[in-house]
Amino acid sequence: MTFKILADSASDLPLSYYEKHEVTLLPLKVNLDGKEYEDLKTIEPTTVYNAIRSGQVPKTSQVSPALFKDVFTALAQNNEKAVYIAFSSQLSGTYQTAVMISEQVKEEYPNFDFTIIDSKCASLGAGLVVQEAVKLRDQGKDVSEIIPRLKFLCEHMEHLFTVEDLEYLAKGGRVSKASAFLGGLLNIKPLLHVEDGKLVPLEKIRGKKKLLRRMIELIEERGEKLDQQVFAISHADDEATALEVKEMIVEKFHPQDVFISSIGASVGSHTGAGTIAIFFLNKVSE
Rank of each mutant, 00 (worst) to 15 (best):
A7W: 08
L15A: 08
S16M: 09
E22L: 01
V30F: 12
N31W: 10
L40H: 11
L40E: 12
I43H: 02
R53E: 15
S61A: 15
S61V: 09
P65L: 03
F68M: 11
K69H: 15
V71N: 07
L75F: 12
N79D: 12
K81I: 00
A82G: 14
S89C: 02
L91N: 01
S92N: 05
T94I: 03
V99Y: 07
E103M: 00
Q104H: 06
E108P: 03
Y109P: 09
N111I: 09
F112Y: 12
T115P: 06
K120V: 03
A126V: 06
E132K: 14
R137Q: 05
E145S: 06
L150R: 07
L153Q: 06
C154D: 12
M157R: 10
E158N: 08
V163I: 14
A170K: 02
S176V: 13
K177Y: 12
S179I: 07
K189A: 03
V194I: 15
G197N: 00
V200L: 04
E203W: 02
K204P: 11
K204N: 11
R206T: 06
G207N: 07
K209I: 05
I216P: 02
L218K: 15
G223N: 04
L226Q: 07
Q229V: 03
F231C: 11
E247P: 09
K252Y: 03
S261Q: 08
V267G: 08
G268I: 10
G268T: 04
G268S: 10
A273R: 07
A277L: 05
N282S: 11
